[in-house]
Design a binder for these strands. Structure first.
Length: 492
DNA sequence: GCCATCGGCGCG
DNA sequence: AAAGCGCGCCGATGGC
């Protein structure tokens, strides 16, 4: 039986109310520290000049110039690829997306120990910071009653999964993972005078939403058990270790290069390659033994190659990751695997899919797309449903706090310190209690995590909070807070 | 000078 | 069958 899927009235209403909420959020805007921004732009421009000059002073630049003459451009990916992999004879293992050229990406060149390459990659990085982020903010900045603001656009009509996107400037992709760049950029954003930033996140939103779709009992149990650490279990399998032998780094790479990759539909060949390069310098936890030695003890001495057909050769890391992949999908999460098969078969039959949140997607998509879209979209819809209600609650309680932005599974608020705990409480009530009542199909309920900055401090100073028994929220690491910012003020 | 495309890279 | 999903944005490049 063929079903033609149509977005439900409830989902359309969510979209409209969400658009209104995002419109309010846009009008509120983000305050900018103009003095800091201007000074930092000059500083970064000077650093770029220095880096560019050291490229031009490099002995290898003679070859670069003889190839390109006056067109030699120290910022050209194509040109440095020709220099490094052509003139200098290095072997490139990464191709561009179309596969017709040698790549000059970080991944392709980070292991090349040449000053000119290091400086090229540094220049790239600084140009991104300067052009995309700092200048992007300055271009969008407007003055309002003596305060400088940007008003980023939040779009609900652009993304295939019915997620949001943001632009002008895009505040959904600001540096976060690298402290140095995160600090430099996030110092641009400051709260309104006397206020502070509060941020709440949905913990593991997509993993939980996947369990809500697949109803895999193993996944559900892990989501509901705060002591479960499935990434550690997977790391132990991947690296032939006990759970105790899994270090933080080993767990990190298992999570990012295997679990998440597999989750989005990658396969063992890519995972094995990425894991193999990640573990080259790692050791077994609390031990001198390297992971490579551990694998060798288990008969694995090389990465190996992707087989043309059939299974990878025994004794290679490819074969090991293939084995873990089979265990992962055919044994551990076999219900999830069956769901993927059924979900895709239904799509092939219907020509579209229906999300549990009421949004329909029709058209021609790959298997990976069809499996990922409902999970990505529905995770965000938890937030979309909540945003107008958060705005309404702030109004109802006559609060001065304002939502200023949203990053798919997190909400950013500019709040007076007296309202800090109330802000978190309001969001917690809506996103973890009201929402579960409205959507009874949520077998894995959402959980909120919270962070905040000190009063009058920029976004760079976000610190994790934990909830006390009395319902107040305090820094998870009070000692660290005290060293950085002085005494923690409960309520002011 | 304008436009479209590509490579590259930031975030969830 | 396909081979990790979704975005926005910059600078380089090449055609007009």
């Amino acid at each position: 039986m063929r079903h033609v899927h149509t977005t439900t009235p409830a989902a359309n209403q969510m979209l409209l109310e969400g658009a209104l909420a995002l419109s309010e959020i846009e009008q509120t805007g983000w305050r900018i520290d103009k003095g800091y921004l201007d000074a930092t732009i000059l500083e970064v421009e000077n650093r770029i000049k220095e880096v560019d000059q050291s490229i031009r002073n490099d002995p290898s630049f003679v070859k670069w110039r003889s190839r390109y003459g006056t067109n030699a451009n120290v910022a050209s990916a194509n040109q440095i690829a020709k220099l490094v992999f052509g003139d200098l004879g290095y072997v490139c293992s990464v191709r561009t997306d179309r596969g017709d050229r040698e790549s000059a990406s970080k991944k392709a060149m980070e292991d090349i120990d040449l000053p000119i390459v290091k400086n090229y990659l540094l220049g790239n990085k600084l140009r991104k910071l300067h052009g995309t982020y700092l200048m992007g903010i300055r271009r969008e900045m407007v003055e309002h009653h003596g305060i400088w603001l940007v008003h980023p656009n939040f779009n609900l009509n652009t993304v295939v999964t019915f997620r949001s996107s943001a632009n002008a400037p895009n505040v959904q992709n600001m540096y976060k993972r690298e402290p140095e760049y995160a600090n430099t950029l996030r110092r641009c954003f400051i709260p309104r005078p006397g206020q502070q930033f509060v941020e709440t996140d949905l913990a593991s939103a997509e993993v939980k939403m996947a369990a809500n779709y697949t109803l895999d009992p193993v996944a559900i149990k892990e989501c509901l058990d705060p002591k479960a650490d499935p990434h550690k279990d997977t790391a132990a399998k991947l690296f032939c270790m006990t759970r105790e032998e899994v270090s933080k780094m080993a767990r990190f790479h298992a999570k990012n290069s295997f679990v998440f990759a597999q989750f989005y539909g990658d396969y063992y060949v890519n995972c094995a390659k990425n894991l193999w390069s990640a573990i080259q310098d790692l050791t077994v936890n609390d031990s001198e033994e390297t992971i490579l030695q551990r694998l060798a003890k288990n008969g694995i001495t090389e990465l190996g190659e992707a087989p043309e057909e059939g299974e990878p050769r025994q004794g290679t890391y490819m074969a090991q990751v293939r084995k873990v992949e089979k265990w992962y999908w055919e044994k551990k999460y076999k219900v999830h695997t069956q769901w993927k098969r059924d979900w895709y078969a239904n799509y092939k039959n219907d020509g579209g899919i229906m999300m549990k949140t009421g949004f329909a997607i029709n058209g021609s998509y790959s298997k990976n797309d069809i499996i990922n879209y409902p999970i990505q979209g529905s995770s965000f819809h938890q937030l979309l449903w909540s945003l107008p209600r958060i705005n309404a609650a702030f109004r109802k309680f006559k609060m001065k706090s304002r939502v200023i932005g949203e990053v798919h599974d997190s909400v950013d608020v500019d709040a007076p310190p007296s309202e800090r705990d109330d802000v978190i409480e309001v969001i917690k009530q809506i996103m973890t209690k009201d929402l579960v009542k409205a959507w009874p199909w949520l077998v894995v309920p959402p959980v909120i995590e919270a962070e905040c900055c000190p009063v009058d401090r920029p976004f760079a100073d976000l610190v994790g909070l934990k909830e006390e028994l009395d319902g107040s929220w305090v820094p998870a690491d009070l000692a660290k807070w005290k060293v950085k910012f002085g005494n923690w003020v409960l309520k002011s």
